[in-house]
Amino acid sequence: MNNTLDVKNINKTYNGVKVINDISFAVKAGEIMGIMGPNGAGKTTTIRMIMGITAPDQGELHFFLNGESRNRIPQASVGYLPEERGLYKEAKVMEILLFLSGLKGLDKVIARKRIMEWLEKFQLADKANSKVQQLSKGMAQKVQFIASVLHQPALVVLDEPFSGLDPVSQDIFKQEIRQLADEGMSILISSHQMNLVEEICNRIFIINKGEKVLYGPLQDIKAQYGSYQVNIIAEQEIPELTQSPLVQSFQRLGKKWSLVLKDNTAPAKFLATIPPGAPIDELSVARISLHDIFVRIAKGGSSDEINLENR
């Protein structure tokens, strides 16, 4: 698969503080790539550099869009939903979408047709002539999303697209983003809500304190970090389980014991090793979540970094 965007060794320093430290990743054509990390990790700064709003102090950006290779962002071929979201409150929905698509070079007649199609998709067709200030927050966010994809860009960058949305709207967004990727659009999503992003991303890049933590296909990362987690409620340690050769690591929080199984360990194989009469009150098995992986790595520091790009 060809890369749509190559980010190579970018750095950014603000007021003497290095906020982005030597970051590299790529977005492939037609994939959904997630850039994740806690608040203040450097996601938005990275995205602003990609969007050409700020420039990296060091490093390079390469865009391969519509058969052309460039070092500067071809603004008309990229869509953007910024984290700092807003719309002109006094303007009407149709007007503002026509204006924004006009800046991307979209013909007015085509734009008008597409706007109505999108508004219908989001059940906002009756709001085309409403002023932005009459819309709810969720509605406005849908309008902003439409503005970022209306000109059918080859690459769309969505900074925290799910924040502030109710679960129903989140599902609609996920569905539409998936659909756009299926149609061949490359999508870069940033979010601190890992559970939402892991549902739709093909690959992820996890960033913390401006540095790379994890990068690669989602499945590979999950495989690398133990496929399953066994949660046990027990008064005391059961050494047969915590010291089991099938367990990669464990954590204790009061009566709660979390055991991460080694790669490719079937849960049933582990469960068969539980001694009869072991003092267990509760037991559950779940696939390890991205969130858990991140928390473990973040706590462990950057020495836990792995790169699964070429796996």
């Binding site: 910024p82 409150k89 924004l100 800046l103 991307k104 902003q144």
Partner: peptide, 16 residues
């Protein structure tokens, strides 16, 4: 000021 208050600057600056 309005551009900033309406949080439109970034979206416009991604196009121009």
């Amino acid at each position: 000021l309005q551009e900033k208050q309406d949080r439109m600057a970034e979206i416009i600056l991604s196009s121009v």
